[in-house]
Design a binder for these strands. Structure first.
Ligand SMILES: NC(=O)c1ccc[n+]([C@@H]2O[C@H](COP(=O)([O-])OP(=O)(O)OC[C@H]3O[C@@H](n4cnc5c(N)ncnc54)[C@H](O)[C@@H]3O)[C@@H](O)[C@H]2O)c1
Ligand SMILES: NC(=O)c1ccc[n+]([C@@H]2O[C@H](COP(=O)([O-])OP(=O)(O)OC[C@H]3O[C@@H](n4cnc5c(N)ncnc54)[C@H](O)[C@@H]3O)[C@@H](O)[C@H]2O)c1
Lengths: 231, 231
DNA sequence: CGCGATTTGTGCACGACTTCACAAGCGCCT
DNA sequence: AGGCGCTTGTGAAGTCGTGCACAAATCGCG
């Protein structure tokens, strides 16, 4: 499940605060999900919880890390050392959560050779060679959108089978290669949609540009993390 | 729906390449989704497509932008001008897709007053006042995790009703406030999970740490964008 | 040693979403 | 003007995920 990393983060927090065991209720609220859903998720991994007590935090961490394949520290290649790429290269959160940025790449000759956070920027043409040497299976694309497909092709050719794409475009990759996309503008637009919806509910429904669809004819869903009362 | 922004991006691309109309098939492949799903999505907005022809690109853009509430350029507050915050502040993609970074905030006195991309960094204590003046309804949190909840509270107090959170933690906000989270480490961990799964399928299933769960007992889902053959 | 409090694991039902398949509508070509 | 091919919009079935509610299991305490 895609929620396991969230549980893992919550578990690490709990472990640091001295908890040895957690109830499904406690972990669920820490991870921001329903407790029934959490129990079902954990039961899918054939989990080790003790009825009447809860889950052993350390054991559960070990279990989830194993399922996520985090027992080995995975090497990641970062392509595109621009505005965003610099921030990513300097991000400590990767190292603390199971990943190692093994190499940086860029196509701009003036950037090649630059040192960032102890890593040298390589030219993209050296990708295949270095990827093999470092056994890199995960690539991060932080180039402009027009270059993203080309970079993706090169990553795949270099043996990368998982790609995290920050460029706002869809990538075509062969079967067997996984792509996840992060598009900040889309996130904001989804928030904007909710703003628009909220505004339509409170004020009088001003007529739209092309007719009468103000508050959305049918109910839309919107796949979003929402609310939770404080304290 | 959360897919509308993706359609919108694809439509803008099509418009720039000179297309006046698109078939659902064409737009679907450009956005990376099933054509039936796309048609159903568009029909939910009471859409204007012409049978036998397709959709009018310009009209559809107008429709979707209206539904997403992008007819007005929304003001965004960015809190936390560190590593990531700098990259976000300098990102042109926000401006081209309906948003305006209206103000930057940080708690570090040495950062206050700094100019980034034409914007001055304000102290977080001035948030309420400036948010009201600029009518900011969307906030972006790019502070370390321990500060995120406090910042969220201040944003809510300042009238912000939508938050995009980059800190790896769950936020508690009052009902009516929307929160979306972007956690890069989680994205990578999901990719790692797929890597692990792929490896388990090909090689012999090496026994896990606590027993015999290697390739996952039940089938997991994993909510992921995947494949699509090239050319 | 037994009982009650507590918490997990899960059967079940409901709802949402996805996908197929096809009828209805539209334009173009003859 | 009429037929034909193309495309939309949608009915319906199947799939998946969610959440409730409860039985089974375990611990602590008397
Ligand atoms: N900056 C942000 O905060 C931000 C936020 C969201 C999304 N993005 C997206 O991330 C991507 C990068 O953004 P940015 O602001 O860092 O852009 P940028 O222009 O600052 O950096 C892009 C880098 O990619 C390099 N590059 C270009 N073509 C390349 C190629 N073929 N191979 C290797 N490297 C190549 C360039 O030399 C440059 O260093 C863009 O697609 C952008 O839309 C950026
Ligand atoms: N750098 C990345 O590429 C990256 C990637 C993913 C996630 N993140 C997350 O984004 C967040 C920021 O990362 P970063 O690398 O930019 O960290 P950073 O330490 O470079 O920047 C954090 C900034 O927040 C400011 N800040 C701290 N407390 C504040 C408060 N109470 N109010 C206002 N401002 C405050 C600090 O002064 C600092 O300028 C972190 O939670 C990190 O986990 C960063």
């Amino acid at each position: 499940m895609a929620r396991l990393p969230e549980y893992l983060r919550a578990l690490h927090n709990l472990a640091e605060t001295g908890h040895d065991t957690v109830s499904s209720e406690g972990l669920a609220s820490a991870a921001g999900v329903n407790s029934a859903k959490l129990r079902k998720d954990l039961s899918h991994l054939g989990s080790y919880g003790t009825r009447g007590v809860g889950y052993d935090v350390a054991l559960l961490i070990e279990q989830i890390e194993y399922v996520l394949g985090l027992t080995q520290r995975r090497a990641v290649a970062l392509v595109g050392v621009g505005n965003l790429g610099h921030a990513l290269a300097g991000y400590a959160g990767f190292a603390t959560r199971g990943f190692r940025i093994a190499a940086l790449f860029d196509a701009d000759p003036s950037r090649v050779g630059e040192r960032i956070n102890g890593l040298v920027v390589h030219h993209i043409d050296d990708l295949t060679q270095i990827a093999a040497a470092e056994s890199i299976a995960i690539g991060v694309i932080a180039t402009p959108a027009p270059a993203a497909q080309s970079v993706a092709d090169q990553l795949v050719a270099a043996g990368v089978t998982s790609i995290l794409n920050f460029a706002p475009c869809v990538l075509s990759v062969p079967e067997g290669v996984d792509v996840r996309k992060v598009d900040l503008a889309i996130e904001l637009q989804i928030l904007s949609f909710h703003e628009h919806r909220k505004a339509s509910l409170t004020s009088l429904p001003a007529t739209g540009p092309a007719g009468g669809l103000t508050a959305l004819p049918g109910g839309l869903s919107a796949t979003g993390t929402e609310e939770a009362v404080g304290t």
